[in-house]
Each structure stands twice: as structure tokens, then as C-alpha cells.
Simulated scan of single mutants.
Amino acid sequence: MSSQVLFKEVQKISQIWVWLIIAIPVVLSWYGAYQQLLLGKPFGNNPAPDWMMLLLLLVFGVLFPVYFHYIKMVTEVRKDGLYVRFYPFHRSFKRFPFEIIQNYEVLTYNPIRDYGGWGIRHGFKGNAYNMAGNRGVLFEFADGKKVKKLMIGSQIPEKLSEAIRKAIEK
């Protein structure tokens, strides 16, 4: 990882609809814990014991939103290749050396139809690392006799493509 970074993009979960979905168990766990632990009113028709309610509050009311807050995708162009890390799922960067890149182009795509959604995806059109939106750079890699395709989602795909072009030219 000593190679100079020529381009870097960090993407986090920013869609309001995702955070609204995440908020449902957070609000329910906080409300249930408040009702049962502070007001002394059993929460629900078959209430959990207080220790379980405290555990649910810790898991869904604290750890769950913190976990989603720290999910991020980092894309870097360095002198020796393209690097992608989907934190916390990748322990380190995935490196794609320039020598195996056959082609790349900026595209608008349909994340759900083409790849099955956002995240680390394996879809009909190849693999994808995407965080949000519907734009990115589609890479074709030479891997022996096969050509593998990888969509790297980006909020600034033109800059990513330009950084790749400049790095390959050097």
C-alpha cells in the first residue's frame, strides 16, 4: 500500500430511505426499553424479560445503527492499479492491476435489474461494488481465457475514469 494515491472516493450510506428502514428497529427497541425498563409497563402481548429488553436495546438500538454508519466503500486509483475496499466486509483493499484491464467505460445502469441491488453484488451482467446511485465505471478484466466484468459504482465516475486513463498512460 505504499503506492501513491492518484484518486480517492469514499462513499457511505446516504440514501434517506435506507436510514428510514434502519430507524424502524432502532425506534422500536428504544420505545420498548423505555416502556418496560423505565415506566415498568410490559412491552407487547408476550413481553420479554428485562435482561432481554436491555440486550435488544443494545443490539438494535445501538450496535445496529452504528454498524450501518461505518459501512463505506473506498475506491482508489494508485500508480500500480485500481483498489476497492468495501468496509467492513473486505479486510483489505482488492487490487486490480492495470495490466489486466482490457476496457473500461462510464455507464448509467440499473442496480436492481443488472446486479440485484447495492453492495457487493453478483448479477446477470457481472459483479458490482456499489453504494448508491446508478452511475459507475464498468471494467472488463482479462483473466486467462475469460473476460470478467466489474461495475464500480461512483458518484463521480468521469473523474474515476480520467484517473484510470492518466495512471495507465504513465
Rank of each mutant, 00 (worst) to 15 (best):
V77K: 05
G81Q: 07
F98M: 07
D80W: 04
Y115I: 13
V84Q: 10
T75R: 06
R95G: 02
T75F: 04
V66F: 03
R78Q: 11
G81T: 11
E76D: 02
T108R: 12
F86I: 08
F64Y: 14
V77E: 04
Y87H: 15
F96V: 15
F86C: 08
N103R: 14
G119C: 10
V74G: 02
V62W: 01
Y104M: 06
V74T: 15
P65M: 04
R85Q: 15
W118I: 09
T75P: 04
I112Y: 08
F89A: 05
R85S: 06
K72F: 11
Y115K: 12
L107P: 00
K79C: 00
R121K: 13
E105L: 10
T75I: 13
I100H: 03
F86T: 07
Y67E: 00
W118P: 06
I101S: 03
F68Y: 14
L107K: 14
Y87D: 10
G119Y: 09
V66S: 00
R91D: 02
V106T: 14
R91P: 00
E76Q: 15
H69D: 00
E76A: 02
L107S: 02
F93D: 12
L63K: 01
I100Q: 13
V106P: 06
R113Y: 02
G117M: 12
N110F: 07
T108P: 01
P97D: 08
R113P: 00
E105R: 15
W118C: 04
R85H: 09
E76C: 09
G119L: 07
Q102V: 08
Y104H: 13
E76V: 07
R95H: 15
P65C: 03
F68C: 01
R113M: 11
D114E: 13
F89W: 06
K94Y: 12
Y70Q: 02
P65L: 01
K94E: 14
K79G: 11
Y115P: 11
V77G: 07
N110M: 10
G116W: 10
Y67D: 01
D80C: 07
P111R: 05
F86L: 08
I112F: 10
P88A: 05
R85G: 06
P88R: 06
F89C: 05
G117Y: 12
G81D: 06
I71K: 04
R85M: 10
S92M: 01
E99Q: 10
R95K: 15
V62K: 00
L107M: 13
R113I: 10
Y67I: 12
Y83S: 03
L107A: 09
V106M: 05
F64E: 00
N110V: 03
Y87Q: 10
R91A: 04
R85P: 01
Y115V: 14
Y104W: 13
S92K: 14
L82K: 06
I120M: 11
I101P: 04
I101N: 02
Y67K: 02
P111N: 04
V106D: 04
R113G: 07
I112S: 09
L107G: 00
G119R: 05
R121V: 09
V106R: 09
T75C: 06
S92L: 00
T108I: 09
K94L: 14
F86M: 13
Y70K: 01
Q102K: 14
I71E: 01
P97I: 11
F93H: 10
F68Q: 01
L107C: 07
Y104D: 06
K94W: 13
L82N: 03
E105P: 05
V106Y: 04
F98S: 05
I71S: 04
I120A: 02
F98Y: 15
V77R: 06
Y70L: 04
